[in-house]
Design a binder for these strands. Structure first.
Lengths: 203, 203
DNA sequence: AGGATTATTTATCGATCGATACAGAAAGGA
DNA sequence: TCCTTTCTGTATCGATCGATAAATAATCCT
């Protein structure tokens, strides 16, 4: 049951990684086919044979991105000892991820809200689902803390999660605008100054 | 000294307003010349004669945007009795501006960080200047409060302004993602829960 | 070895991009 | 009235967009 036909002459994963980097940097519309093929080191027919279309390639690049940075952030939230530590780790890790040298600034999925114009409805929906999931993970962590008695029953997990996700998305914009890691970390810490007040608010 | 030649057959301000709306909604790259001329109700040669180029048209549309919503937000900050009230008004007014029916969601200038790919260096610089100015206005208001003794001398106006501008920029993303005005207002109020902590922090 | 299958390279395809050439139309100035 | 000036509509420019047709090359199976 070996593979039939002429073997592929390029590394599919490596080519997809290069496509992800270009989409991440320039967005869907901003990355042209000629730029993509140049970055991936292949010709257009090879790209279409391996990935289907520009739109399908973007979805696969987005999945690869989530398997990387998305999983990293998810682990930070899951492994933190308290809800407050989870949110703080989520923001501080984001500050680091958004400013890595050699990688595009900010979050690929978040920036696609604006970048994403021109994608298919299927891809737009996948992007929206990914963003909603990020908030759902934080909200679930807060709700777990609330049920464990770590937080007062009067606080509003959905609202708190919405706030901190908004801060993180704002950090994506700032990173794209040239903010450094220390600047983003200061913003993250500033938002944590609201924690005590938020966790005592009524829902 | 009356105007020479054939008079213009369209309202220049009205056409520019239509261009602003389209750029605001779709970004520079996302708004094509054919879409622009259709929205403005004129043909391409008229557009180039009146505005110069697509890039120059974008700059003029941006200036019109700043004369509108930008001035509104600046007035909120200037007229508020205290620094805290200024920041809160800035965020609450943003929540309203970002969700007006019949207008694109979010801030045109902020979203151009991502949207703006493809503009000339001159336009990119103008957009960055506009964003920096927003933060400078808030920082100046905080500094004024600090010098008036309204805030403790140990607090950091630049850091506080950076935080609240980040929240407002995050609200732009959320608005683009479908957040409603009440949701954005809740986020704005949540961020104000950090005020007391931030204004007692050391710089 | 020979046929089947798949990937590669080259050379495009029609559509759309931003931007203009050109000729006719509508105004003021002489 | 005729000339100059400016705007308008038509028609189109070269470049680039995303996507493919066709021919060739490389592998497996029999």
């Amino acid at each position: 049951m070996a593979e039939r036909g002429r073997p592929r002459a390029f590394d599919r994963n490596q080519a997809l990684h290069q496509a992800m980097m270009l989409f991440w940097e320039k967005g869907f519309q901003g990355a042209s086919m000629s730029e993509l093929t140049a970055a991936m080191g292949i010709n257009a027919p090879s790209l279409y044979a391996a990935f289907g279309s520009k739109d399908a390639l973007y979805r696969q690049a987005m999945a690869l991105y989530e398997e990387g940075d998305g999983v990293v952030l998810g682990r930070e939230i899951a492994e933190a000892p308290t809800a407050k530590a989870a949110v703080e780790a989520y923001l501080m890790r984001s500050a680091a991820l958004f400013t890595r040298p050699g990688k595009p600034a900010g979050c690929m999925v978040v920036l696609s809200v604006v970048h994403g114009a021109g994608t298919s409805p299927q891809t737009s929906e996948a992007l929206r689902d990914a963003r909603n999931e990020a908030q759902a993970v934080i909200e679930a962590r807060l709700r777990r803390a609330l049920e464990a008695g770590e937080l007062p029953a009067t606080c509003d997990p959905a609202m708190i999660a919405s706030f901190y996700v908004t801060v993180q998305q704002g950090m994506s914009i700032r990173a794209r605008d040239g903010a450094t890691r220390p600047e983003l970390e200061a913003i993250a810490q500033a938002s944590m100054a609201a924690w005590d007040g938020l966790t005592q608010m009524q829902g």
